[in-house]
């Protein structure tokens, strides 16, 4: 194995190459105002059938409850150690929606997560206006599969955390210095056009993506 490594590197190093000159690395951006960014983000999300709801710190819990009921969700998986998790525990008034905490390792409850959950909620690490993307940095409090397994994924987004471009987010948030174990861009519900180029939603991941924008 280490033989392969040295052979490959040896072959690559045998090739003399002039150093490429340093590339100019402009950070792509747009001169968008906060409102324009929100508008662009909403348009892009809607184009891929994600639902964007404008709400605020006071009302999001009620709005979420309404949305879940319209979608027929009977339960909601959440991360109990997050600030929004705390709010949900006291704020979700209806007994119709069962709160399921993601508080154990996946191996302990894989089949329940896959087979019995209807919806999930996560926070996010900001969003990107240009492409209509949410940035998620899953961690020990908010696991990775929260945003992937339940059929409906709801996301809380602070309106002032929308960046114009991915490049701008990478730069401003200092990703290169402090990159998490897993970083994700999510731009709509799961989809595929592998059958006869016809777009179908909800292939493996969520069939529905709901963004609650907090203003």
């Amino acid at each position: 194995m280490s033989d392969a490594r040295s052979h490959i590197l040896q072959r690559l190093r045998a090739v003399g190459r002039a150093e490429e000159s340093e590339l100019a690395r402009p950070v792509a951006s747009h001169p968008w105002s906060r409102e324009e960014k929100l508008q662009r983000f909403t348009e892009c999300m809607s184009a891929v059938r994600a639902d964007v709801h404008l709400t605020n710190e006071r009302e999001w819990c009620n709005d979420l409850q309404q949305i879940l009921m319209t979608k027929g969700a009977r339960n909601l998986v959440y991360a109990p150690a997050t600030p929004h998790g705390q709010i949900l525990q006291s704020g979700l008034s209806s007994g119709d929606i069962e709160l399921i905490p993601y508080d154990q390792e996946i191996e302990q409850w894989k089949s329940r997560l896959f087979d019995e959950t209807d919806a999930s909620i996560t926070s996010c690490h900001g969003a990107i206006a240009e492409t209509g993307s949410l940035i998620l940095w899953p961690d020990e409090t908010e696991p990775r599969l929260l945003s992937l397994v339940p059929p409906v994924h709801c996301v809380l987004l602070q309106a002032d955390q929308i960046y114009s471009t991915f490049a701008e987010a990478v730069e401003n948030q200092g990703w290169a210095e402090d990159i998490p174990t897993n970083a994700l861009l999510i731009s709509g519900p799961s989809k595929s056009a592998d059958i006869a180029q016809v777009l179908a939603y909800g292939v493996h991941g969520p069939k529905s993506l709901v963004v609650l924008v907090l203003r």
């Binding site: 891929v48 897993n182 731009s187």
Partner: peptide, 15 residues
Amino acid sequence: QPITTYFNMINGPRQ
């Protein structure tokens, strides 16, 4: 597509 649904950046196993 302006972007795909998922862009997944992996930096290590479960911590």
